[in-house]
């Protein structure tokens, strides 16, 4: 199965038509649990982006050496290795950022989106395409987290990136975990509505 998409198409696919959170509905736990602020979304997004790109490239490089029966353990091993490496490097060279996002980095091992991309894409396609696909998916995840974080931070605590923009707290409910489901659900509906609208305007079915 050869891939017929250009690098740019692969990136936009990850962000829009196959957005991990809003379209594929994967890795919902972090989307609901951690996305209370924009900053959290950016931090986790960057960490996922790196792990996704590195893992995709690694699996794509070794795709002919991986026995099909043990591919899932191999994916997990690859992801765990990269997560550990990023964890160690961050702790050593960026201690201040690590203090904020250390806990998120360790969580990434269990993210469904990364394993899914390795299984669906990286184990079949070339290294180059896998890189762009990983980049697109990582960016898509980051965009999703930032958008949800934006809504929840603005409505929940009246702030954006820690700056008080509203001066009051509209709805404390949005900070609570249960509100994460509502926001994700509304965002999904919004993304789907845009897609339908776009296709109709283009005269597609």
């Amino acid at each position: 199965m050869a891939n017929d998409k250009s690098s740019m198409q692969l990136i936009t696919r990850g962000i829009l038509s196959e957005n991990p959170i809003f379209k594929l509905a994967l890795s919902m736990c972090p989307a609901v649990g951690i996305s209370t602020t924009v900053m959290n979304g950016i931090m986790l997004g960057i960490a996922v982006l790196f792990v996704q790109v590195f893992s995709s490239v690694t699996i794509s490089l070794f795709k002919n050496l991986i026995h099909p029966r043990i591919r899932i353990p191999t994916y997990t091993l690859t992801i765990a290795t990269w997560v550990t490496v990023i964890d160690l490097v961050l702790a050593a060279y960026m201690p201040e950022a690590y203090a904020k996002m250390g806990i998120f980095v360790k969580l990434i091992v269990a993210f469904a989106i990364i394993t899914m991309r390795l299984e669906m894409f990286a184990c079949k396609e070339s290294v180059n395409d896998s890189f762009w696909d990983g980049l697109g998916m990582g960016l898509g995840f980051m965009v999703g987290m930032v958008v949800i974080g934006f809504v929840r931070e603005l409505l929940g605590s009246g702030m954006i990136l820690g700056y008080d923009v509203l001066g009051f707290k509209p709805l404390l409910f949005f900070i609570l975990p249960s509100a994460g489901f509502f926001v994700v659900g509304l965002m999904m509906a919004f993304f789907n509505w845009i897609e339908v609208y776009y296709k109709r305007s283009k005269g597609l079915k």
Binding site: I70, P73, T74, L77, A80, V89
Partner: peptide
Amino acid sequence: RLTVSCLLAATVMGLCFIFTS
């Protein structure tokens, strides 16, 4: 193969640990 991949992963992580410690 599993053993080899585990050893490879361990080497990568070990090297990283040594360089960052």
